[in-house]
Design a protein around this nucleic acid. Structure first.
Lengths: 189, 189
DNA sequence: GGAATAACATAGCAGTGCTATGTATTGTGG
DNA sequence: CCACAATACATAGCACTGCTATGTTATTCC
């Protein structure tokens, strides 16, 4: 994990590569393009990591496992995560950000189909709310104010959210707990 | 609301003031100190705004009203809000950040005392979880990816959180709804 | 195999935060 | 009341930043 936090400058980037500063302009069109490409890469990695959560017979567990994968992804590369949401949200490929949500939306749909969630639950809305919890935890944890242990707040928070969506409290608690405890593994490149 | 987002430079700051760049070093000790002072001011304003939420007879309503005040504060000055959580969390006066939470913690305690929340609820934990929801919404909304209307997700999310803490679902829904609809007013300076 | 095009390197520009130094201005002890 | 020390700034300049204009190769196409 990076700790030094020295500034990322154009000249420091090309220092060890034996290449000149112009290469950055050839491939990225400047520093803005480089940061943009980096954010894009961050969302691609995130989407891949969420997609790597193997679906089980329990869609609520899978939702919690994806939440754990989301937070773990942020903590594995906190600087990258912060860069992703630093600038105004203008990705040249917004599809990558949508893919992040889509895998959540699908699991909410599965939970509806299996009768765990009520029929009037909007999958996109509930997925977005799960995202808000994951981002809130990841953002505060990577920024500093939230202690590491507070990440387990995701368990009661997600449980409350999914119980409100219709799931049985006891069963939901077990599902979320098991999903959250799932050791998230970085997907192969 | 600021839209231009031109870079904040030392020379552009002192341009119209008839003062030289050295004044910034006399009063803030450099740009880092200036940004730090700006973050500090942001937390002071936020704490004042949360403290300005007048307590009612319904502590759950007050919690939701503080959530609304938190998000409104972020949306009134989105650039300031982002600066607050941009850098590593090193405030010269962490008390200002703690004050932000304390007013929430007190309302959770009131909800416990009135029997709305269970006795085993940890006020600091539940206040922190409310903060996570508020920050998640505010951060995603000010960064761009979340549409404006999604801020009302706070209502079902907070309701789910407080119902899980022991509140009656129907009563909690009414309290949170009323609290969230409270028009937040900027406190006098 | 000559020409057009891309992929770089070199050098330099305007602008950045910051500091060394100089110069008033203010407060203070006798 | 006044020499004097300390503060509050202004001026000039340094090292560094992202970026661009121009030159120099390499590659590709017909």
């Amino acid at each position: 994990m990076l700790r030094a936090r020295e500034p990322v400058t154009l000249r420091s980037l090309v220092a060890g590569t034996g290449v000149s500063t112009m290469a950055v302009y050839t491939y990225f069109g400047g520093m803005d393009g480089l940061w943009s490409a980096l954010r894009q890469e961050g969302f691609t990695l995130l989407a891949a990591r969420l997609a790597a959560v193997a679906p089980s017979a329990d869609p609520v567990r899978d939702l919690a496992a994806q939440g754990a994968a989301y937070v773990a992804n942020a903590l594995d590369a906190p600087d990258l995560y912060r860069v992703m949401f630093d600038a105004d949200f203008e990705l040249e490929d917004p599809q990558a950000a949508d893919d992040t949500l889509d895998s959540l939306v699908r699991n909410v749909g599965r939970a509806k189909d299996s009768g765990r969630f009520r029929g009037d639950v909007d999958p996109l809305e509930l997925a977005t709310q799960s995202w808000v919890i994951g981002h809130g935890l990841a953002s505060l944890a990577t920024a500093g104010p939230l202690p590491e242990g507070a990440l387990t707040y995701a368990i009661p928070m997600l449980t409350g959210l999914y119980v409100a969506a219709g799931d049985d409290p006891a069963q939901c608690g077990r599902s979320v707990e098991r999903g959250w405890r799932t050791d998230p593994v970085t997907p192969p490149m």
